[in-house]
Amino acid sequence: MAAKIVAALVCMVVMLRLSEAAVYKVGESAGWTTIANVDYKLWASTKTFHIGDTVLFEYNPQFHNVMRVTHSMYRSCNSSKPISTFTTGNDSITLTNHGHHFFFCGVPGHCLAGQKLDLNVIHPASSTPLSDPPISSSSTSPPSTPTIPAAGVPGSSPSHAASLPSAAAAVVALFVSLVFADFAS
């Protein structure tokens, strides 16, 4: 019985941690584009990104891509040696550590036209939501979720975060059922 309780507690801790993660669709309904004149700097400034959050880049892969780059490459829109390149049109990226994460579209002229994004993942101790969380923008699950480290530039930004409270409720229900199953035996 003790082993089941320990296993249930471990599951609960993991699921509660996951239930705090948010999914952000870059550019909201416009997505990742140059056509809609999205201000990605403004978009990012209205969010507080945390470790474990996922950013979703949705775009037409015939006309765009997503490159993860260093800070100096970001500033100069230099696409010669990206850290990584995504080309599916439905790229889901999990943020794994605090600091800045730099992205832009590597199609010539797109970065210079403003299709670039600086996401700042705050240190866990400095998280303070400023307003109510938004509803998730995507109704479909992305096919895969690569994880990426931050570029190592400190800073913070204000927030809106979506959470997954149903996962926490499921873990609590599992824990309770395991405990009561042993008592009934």
Rank of each mutant, 00 (worst) to 15 (best):
residue 13 V to C: 12
residue 13 V to H: 08
residue 13 V to W: 06
residue 14 V to E: 02
residue 15 M to T: 13
residue 15 M to H: 06
residue 17 R to K: 14
residue 20 E to V: 09
residue 22 A to L: 08
residue 24 Y to W: 02
residue 26 V to H: 03
residue 28 E to K: 14
residue 35 I to T: 15
residue 36 A to Y: 08
residue 38 V to G: 03
residue 38 V to T: 13
residue 42 L to S: 15
residue 43 W to Y: 09
residue 46 T to P: 04
residue 51 I to S: 03
residue 52 G to N: 00
residue 54 T to G: 00
residue 54 T to V: 04
residue 65 N to K: 13
residue 65 N to A: 09
residue 68 R to S: 12
residue 69 V to C: 03
residue 73 M to G: 01
residue 84 S to Y: 10
residue 84 S to P: 08
residue 86 F to P: 07
residue 86 F to C: 11
residue 86 F to V: 10
residue 90 N to Q: 14
residue 91 D to L: 00
residue 92 S to E: 11
residue 94 T to P: 05
residue 94 T to G: 02
residue 95 L to V: 03
residue 95 L to S: 06
residue 97 N to P: 07
residue 101 H to M: 11
residue 104 F to M: 08
residue 107 V to D: 09
residue 108 P to Q: 11
residue 109 G to A: 01
residue 114 G to D: 01
residue 118 D to N: 13
residue 120 N to T: 15
residue 125 A to V: 09
residue 134 P to E: 00
residue 135 I to V: 08
residue 137 S to P: 08
residue 137 S to C: 09
residue 138 S to N: 00
residue 139 S to C: 04
residue 140 T to L: 08
residue 145 T to A: 09
residue 153 V to Y: 08
residue 154 P to G: 10
residue 156 S to G: 15
residue 156 S to V: 14
residue 158 P to A: 15
residue 160 H to R: 15
residue 162 A to K: 12
residue 164 L to A: 13
residue 166 S to N: 13
residue 167 A to N: 12
residue 168 A to M: 13
residue 177 S to N: 07
residue 178 L to M: 07
residue 180 F to M: 04
residue 181 A to S: 00
residue 183 F to D: 06
residue 185 S to Q: 03
